[in-house]
Amino acid sequence: MEVALFPAVYRKADVVSTGDAVLAEGESSCFFHAEKKASIACDRCGRFLCGLCDIQLGNEHICATCIESGKKKGKMQKLENKRLLRDRQALVLSIVPLFLTGITALYLTTRYRKDPTSISITQKSRWRFSVAWMFSVLQILIGIFLILSYTGVLDT
């Protein structure tokens, strides 16, 4: 058995500071707590933060407002813990030769075409969406053709 240990094993966790009070006039204070001394600025919006308001996410110091808006807009990747891969769903549905799957695939490729794909894909390729769109249109056209020929509309 091999073990690779790192200093975090024995280092004590950082004690969360509740923030020091503003002592002298002219000292910068926290944006959210006017009576507390600012210790750092938010890396996103630049607001001054006291020890209590400072949230460390990775190597960034962020305020609660930015975290909330980042999560709402889905712009902070580290807060994202699940992603549906619409491009793969659409591709599989477009290949399965059923009329309804083609329509569903076309809906997915249209509705979610700008959605991010897998987080791990380094190349920002959207080829699956394009291929799924082509196959779904083809599938729908073939479906329409089969329905028309079955009902005899094409014969007339």
Binding site: M1, F6, K78, K82, R83, L85, I119, S120
Partner: peptide, 17 residues
Amino acid sequence: YSETYKFYNFRDIHSFT
């Protein structure tokens, strides 16, 4: 068709076995 993510910051990693 779906992925879940777990992030491990370098500063938080204690060990590998």
